[in-house]
């Protein structure tokens, strides 16, 4: 295990609500309020200079329904780290990482499309993979699997097949 992983795990033990290793990769479970400061510290002091992915997991039964997941990478140490935050369905807001990482913009827009997570501070949350007028968020568990929202009206007789 890389030294930086140890260092981070110990350094953020007080901030994170949980830290553990998953397949050799450090996972920090953070409260929403601590996220922005934690990422800023990871970038400035621990060399995590690359944002790889922003995504979410939908747990429909849980009170804090959405788990937003960030993956960071250190090009100095060649180490990855995963950050997780839980938010409620009524208030799916997390801070945007756009001020820290340029790549956050498109990744957050995709996550906003698919899960409806609102990234506070992202200057442009227009649809990126979906289109204007699309209702709902298709990767939420309550989106009907077969529901289509066509932009072009179907030809007569083709819908009933």
């Amino acid at each position: 295990m890389a030294a930086v992983t140890n260092l981070v795990q110990q350094g953020f033990a007080s901030v994170a609500s949980d830290t553990y290793l998953s397949h050799g990769m450090l996972v920090l479970v953070l409260p929403r309020e601590a996220l922005a400061a934690t990422v800023a510290t990871l970038k400035a002091e621990h060399g995590f200079d690359m944002l790889l992915d922003v995504t979410a997991v939908d747990w429909p039964e849980d009170a804090l329904r959405f788990e937003v997941v960030w993956h960071l990478f250190s090009t100095r140490d060649l180490v990855r780290i995963r950050l997780k935050t839980r938010v409620a369905a009524q208030d799916p807001v997390v801070p945007s990482l756009c001020p820290l990482y340029g790549s956050a913009d498109f990744l957050e827009r995709e996550c906003h499309d698919m899960y409806g997570i609102v990234f506070e501070g992202n200057p442009d949350l227009r649809p990126i993979l979906l289109y204007e007028g699309f209702e709902g968020h298709p990767l939420r568990k309550d989106y009907p699997k077969q529901r289509e929202q066509p932009l072009v009206p179907y030809r007569a007789g083709e819908l009933e097949r």
């Binding site: 993979l129 289109y131 289509e148 929202q149 066509p150 932009l151 072009v152």
Partner: peptide, 9 residues
């Protein structure tokens, strides 16, 4: 895709 359908039409 549905997003591409107007182009095909």
């Amino acid at each position: 895709t549905h997003k591409q359908a107007p182009i095909l039409l």
